[in-house]
Design a protein around this nucleic acid. Structure first.
Lengths: 348, 348
DNA sequence: AAAAATCGTGAAAGCGCTTTCATGAATTTA
DNA sequence: TAAATTCATGAAAGCGCTTTCACGATTTTT
């Protein structure tokens, strides 16, 4: 027995309900423009036939898809997981669907994904951070697609963004390290090129150090892609050099976890022998021993707000309002006063 | 300067290149059916105009989208991350795009997502595990959509699957625990209802225990959704009871990580005071102290093979061949011989 | 050299929806 | 009661693509 592949169409429903296709379409999209009894008849016909509107046809005719596209740098680490999850859930409450893809931190891939999402009829797009080729923004504008940026916030920028000040947050974390008495800092940064978040985090540390009168040219900085293994390697490289730091500040939690692992393997105890800090406040930060002292970012809140905002932009066809979120420092135990420093008050 | 929202269409390209729309379509989809010079002229017109085919229109006319849908239970934990990432990358090599959505372990949500993906024109669908309402399978067959199952493998099942034997793997892990001398086992299982992987993992433990002559009715089993916090709670609950186990076997690494955390907080050292095991072999397993003794699943390999297989099914319109993958036990240090193995325990 | 097969191309018919426009019925207003 | 609105509905025109079919031009075969 072969099943005949015949997906019911709107016309089938119309016929079954004894009305015109136009009325069925209205019953689905604007029920209050159709008389009560017909809506009922149509709905029961829809149920009976198991009809679901064809997405492509709908898209073609209406030029709307109730779909939002999001392009994140990576799905591998948990960095974006929680925020995107919240974004999706909130989008869903508004009746929108999320299409995610990842660019692997590659600008060209990202540009390609933007085009792919546009073709697939995304009504709006969420991107991470500010820095990218102007051509991408031009393309988006040309296609009339609203963009919302997340995971970063810069005052005075015309683009709508919902995020936090990466520079200021890292500045504060560095402040904390200095207040504990650290003066010998090393940095494991994410790749800065094309990544404003990474760049600003690095900048935040360096600025704070300079404010302290520290010559930042002598501060060891290793730039490496986010990844536990990279954090390990970078840490090992740093500890091989002559001038050993008392604290290693990492561009994110993933790098920091790698650094702690390597420190432990090298027989160094954290934070007695060396302090290590992270950034993001993902789950990992609480699982590693010792727990990471890190900047906690309200990922879920950010995702929810982003969803609300982009839907608002879409439905009211307005530019959108940027929102700055607060990040907070969470002390986990991986940052303490350097050895030989007085425990209560650290004086320079 | 006002940018006029006018996305170029195939007709524009045709006009620009001085050929018919049909020829442009062919130049894009079947270049060898069009003369060399025209292909060239068309391609340069496409570049010049910045044309990209409209997805909806293409879908309507061709009824193919080169899109595969995947529905995973959750994106939150890293359980599926690596496998899906590999699936996507491999799909991409074949020229396909992946559309992922998550069901939050809810059958109704899953069924809804299946319909959503079908409407969006997915050419095929990847689902996790076997157990789901027959109606879902019927629907898929009715729409003529090939399905591939992953993360599980059952011999003699007509459905095509690429995965591993959850029961057998857990049986072996339990075997290892017994061989170290454990007889008092407690289990923190994932929710079994509607989840054949969780059910089979539990079954694997119980079967092995019975084979040892242990009365499994007295074995404490807590069923709880996957999540670190749930692992913590379950562990606490188990250790409150009179009969304390020497080993707690967890349904996955996430639960095990929670259990280890709680054990540590309760002042128990793992594995000296209590052993804990996991399942999956995700990154977390290596980060927690002590590292987890767990079943390592070749997620990336599974993802890649799944991609190859489903593309093969699609392009050759054939049923597909199931593949069983090997999972291996990886000892991390969270499982050791129980205390007082060769002495009588001083238990009140 | 004639007949047959092959090839490159364009015209045109949809694919399944939404939406404008026209129309007659029901309702309100003057 | 007549005129003006409002309302519910259907006919029909696309949306941007693919693909069948027909046709003349080449090439191959007889």
């Amino acid at each position: 027995m072969t099943s005949i592949l015949t997906v019911p169409t709107l016309d089938d429903v119309a016929q079954d309900a004894g009305v015109s296709p136009a009325t069925v379409s209205r019953a689905i999209n604007n029920p209050d423009k159709v008389s009560k009894d017909k809506v009922e008849r149509i709905m029961s016909a829809i149920d009976r036939l198991g009809y679901t509107p064809n997405f492509g046809a709908r898209f073609m005719a209406a030029k709307r898809t109730f779909t939002i596209g999001a392009i994140i740098p990576t799905m591998e680490n948990a960095i974006f997981a929680r925020g995107i999850q919240a974004f999706q859930e909130q989008l869903r409450h508004h009746g929108y669907t999320l299409l995610v893809s990842s660019s692997a931190y590659d600008p060209e891939t990202e540009a390609e994904q933007v085009r792919a999402l546009a073709n697939r009829g995304a009504d709006g797009i969420l991107l991470i951070g500010y820095w990218r080729d102007q051509a991408v923004y031009d393309y988006l504008q040309h296609r009339g697609l609203p963009v919302l940026l997340a995971w970063a916030f810069a005052a005075n920028n015309a683009l709508t963004a919902i995020g936090f000040d990466n520079r200021a947050a890292m500045y504060r974390l560095c402040d904390l390290a200095l207040s504990k008495g650290h003066r010998d800092v090393a940095i494991i940064s994410g790749i800065v090129e094309g990544n404003d978040r990474a760049a600003n985090r690095l900048k935040g540390i360096l600025e704070r150090l300079r404010a302290e009168g520290i010559d930042t040219d002598t501060v060891p900085v290793i730039e490496t892609p986010y990844g536990i293994a990279n954090g390990r390697d970078a840490f090992a490289k740093i500890m091989v050099q002559d001038k050993k730091p008392t604290v290693v500040m990492c561009g994110n939690d993933v790098l920091a976890v790698g650094a702690i692992q390597m420190a432990t393997e090298m027989g160094l105890s954290v934070p007695q022998d060396i302090s290590i800090t992270g950034f993001d406040g993902i789950e990992l930060a609480d699982i590693i021993t010792p727990k990471l002292t890190t900047v906690f970012v309200p990922h879920a809140d950010m995702g929810r707000r982003a969803a609300d905002e982009i839907v608002d932009m879409l439905e009211h066809n307005k530019p959108g309002t940027s929102q700055e979120l607060e990040s907070t420092i969470r002390e986990g135990g991986s940052l303490a006063a350097p050895r030989g420093q007085d425990r209560s008050t650290a004086q320079g």
